[in-house]
Design a protein around this nucleic acid. Sequence first.
DNA 1: CATGTAAATGTAAACGATTTCATTTTCCTT
DNA 2: AAGGAAAATGAAATCGTTTACATTTACATG
Lengths: 327, 327
Amino acid sequence: MTNIQQVAKQAGVSVATVSRVLNGQNTVTSKTRIKVEEAIKDLNYEPSMLGRNLRNSESRIFLILIPSISNPFYLEIIKGIEHVALSQNYNILLCETDSNPEKENIYFDLVKKKMADGIISMDPAVNIETLKELAEKYSIIQCSEYNVDSGIPYVSIDNEEASYRAVKHLIQIGHKKIALMNSDEKFLYARQREMGYQRALEEHGIPWNDDYIIYTKQLGFEHGQQAVKKILAIQDRPTAIFAVSDLLAIGALKEINASGLHVPNDVAVVGFDKIDFSSMTNPTLTTIAQPMYKMGTVAGEMLIDKIRGNVVDSVILNHELVLREST
Amino acid sequence: MTNIQQVAKQAGVSVATVSRVLNGQNTVTSKTRIKVEEAIKDLNYEPSMLGRNLRNSESRIFLILIPSISNPFYLEIIKGIEHVALSQNYNILLCETDSNPEKENIYFDLVKKKMADGIISMDPAVNIETLKELAEKYSIIQCSEYNVDSGIPYVSIDNEEASYRAVKHLIQIGHKKIALMNSDEKFLYARQREMGYQRALEEHGIPWNDDYIIYTKQLGFEHGQQAVKKILAIQDRPTAIFAVSDLLAIGALKEINASGLHVPNDVAVVGFDKIDFSSMTNPTLTTIAQPMYKMGTVAGEMLIDKIRGNVVDSVILNHELVLREST
DNA sequence: CATGTAAATGTAAACGATTTCATTTTCCTT
DNA sequence: AAGGAAAATGAAATCGTTTACATTTACATG
């Protein structure tokens, strides 16, 4: 493996000069620059990031924490992050935590060991105390999932408002018996979305019905199936369901179909996230579109800013209600 | 940031001893080991991977090349790779190439720059010449998608046999007019699966019909929709479709439903890959299960072997036909 | 107690880049 | 041609580890 010394020797200059050429500094005569460039080509030289990283005390790697790689919602965000990262010569290390603290710690260690320059956390189950502690010494951004008290900058949408709009839509097309398929209330977004649901009902004078709110442990397809069974079994059956995730909604869709009921005639369904698959179901799913790609790019930019030592502010992005066949 | 020097000073030993404690070498007295461990705790010391990586000339990072992060097929493989990687203190850098040579090169450069210790390529569109060249100097494994001539070790399944089994299943349940929804023939797996299709037909004396073979540009949902439209428009309409990817099959499913036909009564559908979503569709999809997780772990182990300088052999894993509602 | 051997520890040189500061070269001015 | 300022280049330190080799320590043996 050829190194910078050998290039310097071949070109008849010092390593400092080679380094300057490598980094495009303009204090190099074009004559010597050419000499160096030829030497680089002759020797097939590729500068080692290992040396450079040590010297610069950086790894040029972002850590991205996601609960599950199988949830398509995150993929689009990741693409956004990646775009920004690559453009600034960063790379991303994808870390699936499975909401498992042990795995989480493996990845946190990575930043302590200087293997990563910063973290973008999208894990709602992340140990917020650990994260806070880490944020004192390292650059961290929360994306989509966040915790205000932590003081860690975040990028997200207005969950309360989005949820309000979704439920209002159901009300406007004539529904009064609207179920909420929520995830665990320990998550901020779950509480926010429930508040939006509540506000929409109140505003239209629809009485509150505890039975209409079902909590699921996770956001997966199967959990949607299970939850909808409970909903369909309610005596005064709801005519509409608002699910806080597309995967839940798709699970519901499938189960409603299976039970012989028709979507949207018997039961209307609204999802949340606008994942790719939400347009592939039968019927296609009305859903709240989060600007996922944008969220990714913003998070990426925020992290770079933070790494550079700047103060960064949290950002709230706009969402959108996408009307499709399920309502 | 505290370094090994400071720990050594605090513990009253040399850096060599600290390093030995860090790496669990047994030539250290338990008395001094304890001294060192206390110093580490006192100073909150975390060894820097940057120094260590430079010294060891390694990055402890795997590069994983996938065409598209959105295709769930790859996710399961990645989980397998990750499992092995973590257990051996490696981390994975996920690289979505979009089958774009430019992006591919960005990532290839990473291994040249020592930012990665090896590559697992799953991209069928990878530039095989570049890969071959790279494989002379660096550790590379092909996973799922491969090229025999390249001489680069691979792990995959027997595509021809899998395809044969899928088509045979359709024949056995009474179908004679079986369409093949294939991807571009430039891919080895596409040619292999077509051969299996052909063999099954021949073996059962079913005449070949060129019209029944449709090629799609990509493996996405929309491509399945488009392709199935062509198939349904054929005069002598097929009663069964074998699609070489679940996403294609799911697209077909949706479109067949939309056209008022029934699956499997009017048209039976078989997919390939057993992605998570294939059990969420209506009806659920009969498909070929590839041992994706296993493929990942094997690929990971092969790569580690290769990095260590061993000779590694290619591996063919078993597949499985999963019967569900669509046939 | 001296001696030899094995075990424990230390010294210093890598690894491969960047960068500060010192030195040399260039080139303009008189 | 001499002098001086500015530009180009070089020498050497530095980043934080690991490890080959040298040295010291511990301990058993005669």
